[in-house]
Design a protein around this nucleic acid. Structure first.
Lengths: 185, 185
DNA sequence: TGTTGACTAGTCATTATTGACTAATCATGG
DNA sequence: CCATGATTAGTCAATAATGACTAGTCAACA
């Protein structure tokens, strides 16, 4: 029977890690569309895949919810830019989403698992050859991770990259064992 | 200057592992919608997430490409069912997609990596608490994997499940190390 | 000064995905 | 025999995601 309403804010449940990412880059500093997109496509494309129109759509939705504000700026005779800034409601949302994201444990679906399920539809030789190819490619991608671009002091991109490296190494180990197991039959 | 055309078939590039999955279950035997959906939602929901309308839409697209055939069947007075069957074009596509899937090495994006990037926006204590919570939940989900339902002799669901178990274990190890590293500062 | 290629900034039509819904049948217990 | 809940089978309106596109600026060189 309490008449108290929750302290408003924004409903956390309708946002995911993409919103967290956008709010996060705006925590660092105000950004216009091109900067945000450049960051997503060039700096962290290995961590998350999000296309430009998706980012704009999300930013628009965040604006509707007053988590970010937009201001159109004209610099010289350049085309006008939308400069996005995080609001205090947005900072709240950011912190809540960050906590939730840190605590969550769900691993993503591995597309490669589907093929494993149907391994018996190939001859043992073909199956082993396929997995060996997967292993080679994985080794190559692991090596390419070594040239990590440097990063500023605020974002822990290094942690995300290390994590991916660890998971890739684990995948490689599993593949190695599995190939050996299949070969021993 | 050759006039030879490729042996037709179906353009492999426009299909992904969800098509492979659907073709795969139809390789086992003809299925009607409910069976397919039951398999996806109850047997392998841990491996891939695909909703019913998505499956129907994909099956429709596969039919348009002559990879599957559909026949409406009426059993007694039950509502009519669409019975899906794989065609020989579809079997071709299945084998190509299976080889490609086995060889591919791309790991998915980990949603949890986004939070890691912004770890510095929490106090060290909060960050460590969040990661410990993540670890607890992961341990719980690892234990729940132990009751794997049994499976038939054709599909290697066991391989996919073992793979997930291995990756979860690796994630746990990484989390453990990372928490220790953060605590030691 | 005209051309080329890279940078900047965003939009839009199309396709993909799914939550919510309809509707019939069947099994069970009272 | 009637109500209830589970099963069966699918559809549809609404939302989400993206490939392809437009369009202006800037720098450098011939």
């Amino acid at each position: 029977m309490t008449m108290q309403t929750a302290p408003a804010g924004i409903d956390v449940s309708q946002w995911d890690e993409r919103a967290l990412l956008l709010l996060g880059v705006l925590m660092v500093e105000n950004q216009h569309g091109y900067q945000i997109n450049d960051f997503i496509e060039n700096r962290i494309c290995r961590v998350i895949a999000m296309k430009k129109p998706t980012a704009y759509a999300l930013l628009e939705r965040l604006e509707k919810n007053q988590a970010v504000s937009v201001q159109v700026q004209q610099e010289g005779s350049r085309p006008p830019r939308k400069v996005f800034a995080i609001t205090s409601l947005g900072r709240d949302l950011f912190h809540q989403l960050l906590r939730i994201n840190l605590e969550q444990s769900t691993l993503p679906g591995f597309a490669g698992d589907i093929g494993l399920m149907f391994l018996n539809y190939l001859s043992p030789e073909e199956a082993i050859l396929g997995l060996k190819e997967r292993r080679s490619r994985l080794e190559a991608s692991l090596e390419s991770m070594d040239q990590v671009p440097p990063h500023g002091p605020i974002l822990r991109i290094d942690l995300a990259v290390e994590h991916r490296r660890a998971m890739t190494q684990a995948e490689l180990t599993w593949l190695h064992d599995t190939i050996a197991r299949l070969e021993s039959i």
